[in-house]
Design a binder for these strands. Structure first.
Lengths: 130, 130, 130, 130
DNA sequence: GTGGTCTAGACCACC
DNA sequence: GTGGTCTAGACCACC
């Protein structure tokens, strides 16, 4: 698990970490039940304050991606308790609505857009059953 | 052009306005060359500070969506000077990467995801040539 | 809205604040749509650090009790988006199981226990329809 | 006496053990005068540090649930020296106040709440006189 | 003026 | 050694 943080990015550091962990799970490079570095260790590795990592882990816990154990630290939730809630789908639709609008106007073809989606989905699905 | 602002949303108001204007262009409800309300008029209509509208218009101009004339106000850029820059495509890919990862893990099928994309694209393409 | 914090309590300050806000909602002393003090103001009022209040408000938001608006601050969620999820009911049962066990052994009668429950429920229901 | 510890739970392990022993007494599966496993034995059985078990037993002794003899080990207090102290009742009330408030707001009816209480009490009372 | 992010450091509970 | 809580203070985005 290698995290690449862009400190100059407008995306907050804690969000970048969250994103990469969720992507790691989708890609299969982080498996359910797998340990994550401790709050303090990851902070040192990345070179940030441990509170920032703490915030990430707590949000991931709240959303069902990880479980936190006082003793043994943090691990990817063995039962990945995340769902396709109505709320989530609505937020996804809103995001895609504006994203496709701009993409369309900038000349990204429907086919090109869908091709990207398929590429990413394939990279996740290729992990299944392994 | 009717803007619906959700004041409780976590999306900044200026971003909501930008999004809806870009979507309006994609949907054909805002046509190239069409006038937009003045900064002060729109601010009053929505009930926000006119500095916020000012910021929106300036960003839209910066990105090539609108042109601003001191005399005649703001209009949708007749030549829609927006492009599929490498920078834009990279940002789009990054966004889709994390978005598809979470969607996949939450049980949104590739087909379901693509269907959403197609629906939105159709709503934009149906405006073409009119 | 008057908060009474016990600084010597073993219950964390942020938890005490959360509890009292939820109770305030149940008692009708905090109404949906009502403004809460700003993060910094409440911190000053109580005499604690604003980060502690921030944590409270963010958790309350996450659980659907309040909405946070960057400009106008925090208010009780007008639509109180909290539900009787299976997860919640399970946690409630677990809590009541151990609580009743100890109460029973310490000589709290079933009737006495239920009387307490009824008293609290009445205090909440008496607010309905007002 | 079978203890089920959830290591991923946010409830501390020592608290889980305490809870289950108290519930065992209430349910009659642990009888006054009955021997408990030795500190080291229980620690091995559960797979935890023996200091944790030590802490549990000492707290249970402190509260009057068990007696500890250096020679004969730990047993459920034959005289169950626990009482309905004012302090205990106050803490119970505080707990029920916040618990009912949230339950009420999440749509747990008074009747449903009381039904749960009655179920648990019945499971304890059915042991009486045996 | 409002909340959001990040840093820094102290002390604590659990194990 | 692990995470949890709280304080303190800086700087930022939004409005």
């Amino acid at each position: 698990m290698l995290l690449k943080i862009e400190f100059e990015s407008e995306i907050p550091i804690y969000q970048q970490i969250k994103n990469q962990i969720i992507q790691g799970i989708a890609l299969g490079s982080l498996l359910p039940g797998e340990d994550l570095p401790s709050v303090r260790q990851l902070a040192v590795d990345i070179g940030i304050n441990f509170h920032t990592v703490n915030k990430v882990y707590n949000q991931l816990k709240q959303e069902g991606w990880v479980v936190i154990h006082r003793k043994s630290g943090v691990m990817i939730n063995p039962e990945l308790n995340v769902e396709k809630t109505e709320e989530y789908v609505e937020a996804l639709k809103d995001l895609l609505k504006i994203t496709t609008a701009e993409a369309y106007l900038r000349g990204v073809s429907k086919e090109g857009f869908i091709k990207m989606i398929e590429t990413y989905y394939k990279s996740y699905e290729s992990q299944e059953g392994e």
